[in-house]
Design a protein around this nucleic acid. Sequence first.
DNA 1: CGTATTTGACCAGCGC
DNA 2: GCGCTGGTCAAATACG
Length: 546
Amino acid sequence: MGKGWGLTLDSDPVTSNFFTNKSNSTTVAGGSFLGLKQHHHRDMFQFPVSLAGSRDNDRHGTSASSSPSDDTKIPVDEVDFFSDKKVRVVDDVKKESIETPASDLDVNTGLLLLTAGSDQSTVDDGVSSDMEDKRAKNELAQLQDELKRMNAENQKLKDMLSHVSNNYSALHMHLVTLMQQQQQQPQRNRETQAIQKSKPEEVTPLQILDLSRPSAAGAEAAETISHSSSEERTRSGTPPSNVEKRVNREESPESESWGANCKVQKLSSGKPVDQSTEATMRKARVSVRARSEAPMITDGCQWRKYGQKMAKGNPCPRAYYRCTMAVGCPVRKQVQRCADDRTILITTYEGNHNHPLPPAAMAMASTTAAAASMLLSGSMPSADGIMNPNLLARAILPCSSSMATISASAPFPTVTLDLTHSPNPLQFQRPPPPPTQFQVPFPGQPAPVSAPQLPQVFGQPLYNNNQSKFSGLQLSQEMGSSQLGRQQQQQHQAPPQQPPTLADTVSAATAAITNDPNFTAALAAAISSIISGGTHPNSSNNNHRQ
DNA sequence: CGTATTTGACCAGCGC
DNA sequence: GCGCTGGTCAAATACG
């Protein structure tokens, strides 16, 4: 297992790092939202907010810039800078006497005032030190005000993000629940009869199928949304293992998926705590096929390898991981390369997280949870084992309705999200990375990615401390760092689309967060898509469309 | 030295 | 019952 890409993620990188300054010493003092923006990100996305603090950053960037984008920006910044300066020098005379409260512009130019003042002093030494002190104090006060304002703004943005995140989770889970109900309506009678034949005291299909537990999404808000259903499930108490066994045995084994159901049975009989819930959660499997040179795809979670086996029919070993983000998290995953195409990495998830997840993990977890939920809701208790694939596909990957397939022959109900197809040939125009690299550049990295660079997730540096495994999520391959430009490209290239549904919006946000190499872009896209509810600002989603 | 990974052993289910 | 297979455990090992 390669060590180079071992990464960890803060429990909540957005709230703990992203809105604070502790992570990046190179950022602008003052803690502005843009302060985290690094030079190589600059042309990827910019919030439509103009903060004074970014100017110094740009100035630093201009000193040793070599990229074309920098070249184009340098003169503008310089001109602005000095034009402000000129104005500033003239204004100094007034300011010395009246000490007016600082406007935003004043704060911005106040930094320049130091330079201007010093320059001026070389020309005119007659300015009294009293005035200098006064002016310096004034500037200090302005800066402090600005700092406060920035902090308040950061706090507001933080709150907004939290709110949006909660809303997203709630909406997502609500959608899943609604779709479950929609799917269950025509089947309920038949399923109930079937179950009652085998075991009359068994739990109802609704209880069995309720996989909308928000743990996979990791959001507390979602937990409250499905609180009642979770309670019901817990109170029901009856392990659905019998139903599972019956269902599983109706399906023939498939070499590429998790095989026997022995583990579920083991779990059901072994541990007393929450067995029914866990067993129910773990029987659904979501397989993600994605192209990746990395040994594992990034899903935002921390995993620990606990086993490796040679699977039948595949020369590549199958690795077993369990989630280590929380003690006792039941989520496991298998990672195996496709026998036919070694560049395809098959990651199979099972279970739902019992702990909050960082946004990076939420994207994948909620997607897989939705897939598992709807898979089970449509197929698990029924004999045909098939739900409406279009509905599932649209709900999971609305942008790639042909890429979500359901394996009816798997020993476990398994939905496969095939993310190996790229509808956009532009995505493959970039030179292929070295074998040890990830195809998806990490957020915060300039493209192309080079392996030794410290990867970042969502604009935050990741600690390369070998605590866990992280690599590039391949939900959409070849997402370059120039995300915004590509998105704009894709907006033009994308075929005519149906009016976006809620699932579209949710998945768009998910995909954006998951794929985007620049968290600010992804965040903005997610927020925008959720808030606007239909404009698809993140056309990265269109990567999946065909 | 603590933690993660490796890898052989072990267990259970399933088919013959 | 036996062998095959998938999945997990845990001691040994590697690594920082």
